[in-house]
Write a protein that binds this DNA or RNA. Structure first.
Lengths: 221, 221
DNA sequence: GGACAACTGGACCGTCGGTCAAGTACGTTC
DNA sequence: GAACGTACTTGACCGACGGTCCAGTTGTCC
């Protein structure tokens, strides 16, 4: 099989510049307020370049999110407890929620933007002309089929892990859905605003309360 | 004092037509996918009329939501228990969450759309049926004071009621935030999808689990 | 150093939310 | 029932934005 040529040096430089510019913009504005032209300008490249590399607005966000979430994914899969394997489910869940709050807090509303982009992309189909290899694995990053998408990989991983932990402790509950609910709260405006005000720990605390209450043994009544 | 004149007959007719058309469109599509032109066409009026009556995309959504939520507000304030006053907080909360799931289920994603629009709208306040002068001031885009707007009235009411009920039973918790988390889940994509598949009762059940776990007396640990 | 593909940039397109000035018709008053 | 003031209606128009296209540039391989 033909191994892909190495990414050209200038392309790599620009890709990094775009990602960095986006991060910077994201630190100051909500994702919906950032236009692709702004990103291009901030990165010092043409708009076409941005689209060439990332395919679409959402592609950019996904790529960025993926990068940010990578470390967490690693830590969960093979890091030390309580985040990694080895600790009891409730402790792992707590640690995981804390970690997620941290990631989301440093990327205001990115998650939310992704969630909506999923529905909002009017894109009927995806032209396969893009050499879409953003920072490594992207086996499935191209499957933006409107029908089949359950969210992007990062969300899928977060949700899968959360619901697994819930199910481990309380198989009688609807872990799948509870995980969506827990994670879904990170998309809401008021919560985002809280994060913007730097009250991440307050959010983490309440999330812990919810998780604990839910995992506690069934009410004696 | 001059009373506001009655709404003109044609205006009333058009307002109803617009609201109805929006509802109809909303039954088939997500709010973000509906363009104002579409609404106007479906209602059989000019685009200008829609904007004249509702001020903006969000104004329309708010008006619609308000109408839908009115009955619930009444029931909570002065209806029979468990929704109305008289029942213990946990029962009222459960009933209230069920009712909200029902309302949201019949208005796909409206809440979510509002939540997001909240950040994007320049419209500071909206009187029910106002002679609304929208020309002239173009300085309005500067007035979204990030602190002052906590979402639209409907959300404020829902949140206020929820957090009050939580606080009544568990004053030691961060009821404000927990209410946002609970309500926020109704904005997330996966949950919306669930609702679209008609699994509202499944959602209601899980919400009850969360609420119950949270209101249960503090863990003995 | 030559050839070729990958990459780049920005003019361009269609759509959308929102505006406006001119026209229309409702309700009132005599 | 005619005349009148005004609330209401309209659709062309505007600026912005996401996304496309392709001619020109540049890095890489031989």
């Amino acid at each position: 099989m033909i191994e892909e040529r190495r990414e050209r040096a200038d392309a790599a430089r620009n890709r990094r510049a775009i990602l960095r510019a986006t991060e910077e913009l994201l630190a100051r504005h909500r994702p919906e307020q950032i236009s692709m032209e702004q990103v291009a300008a901030a990165a010092g490249v043409g708009k076409g370049t941005v689209f060439h590399r990332f395919g679409s607005r959402m592609g950019l966000m996904v790529a960025l999110m993926q990068e940010r979430a990578y470390a967490l994914e690693e830590a969960v899969a093979s890091g030390p407890p309580p985040l990694g394997p080895g600790a009891p489910p409730e402790e792992r869940l707590t640690a995981f929620l804390d970690a997620i709050v941290d990631v989301v807090g440093r990327n205001k509303g990115l998650l939310a933007a992704l969630g909506h982009a999923a529905t909002a992309t009017p894109r009927p189909e995806w032209k396969e002309q893009n050499g879409h290899r953003d920072g490594g694995d992207s086996a499935d990053s191209a499957d933006h089929a409107p029908g089949s998408r359950d969210g992007h990989p990062v969300y899928r991983f977060w949700h899968g892990h959360t619901s697994t932990l819930i199910a481990a402790r309380r198989p009688d509950l609807d872990g799948e859905l509870l995980a969506h609910i827990l994670l879904g709260s990170l998309q809401s405006e008021p919560v985002l605003r809280l994060l913007e005000r730097g009250e991440a720990s307050r959010l983490a605390a309440s999330l812990r309360v919810m998780a604990a209450g839910m995992l506690a043994s069934p009410a004696p009544t």
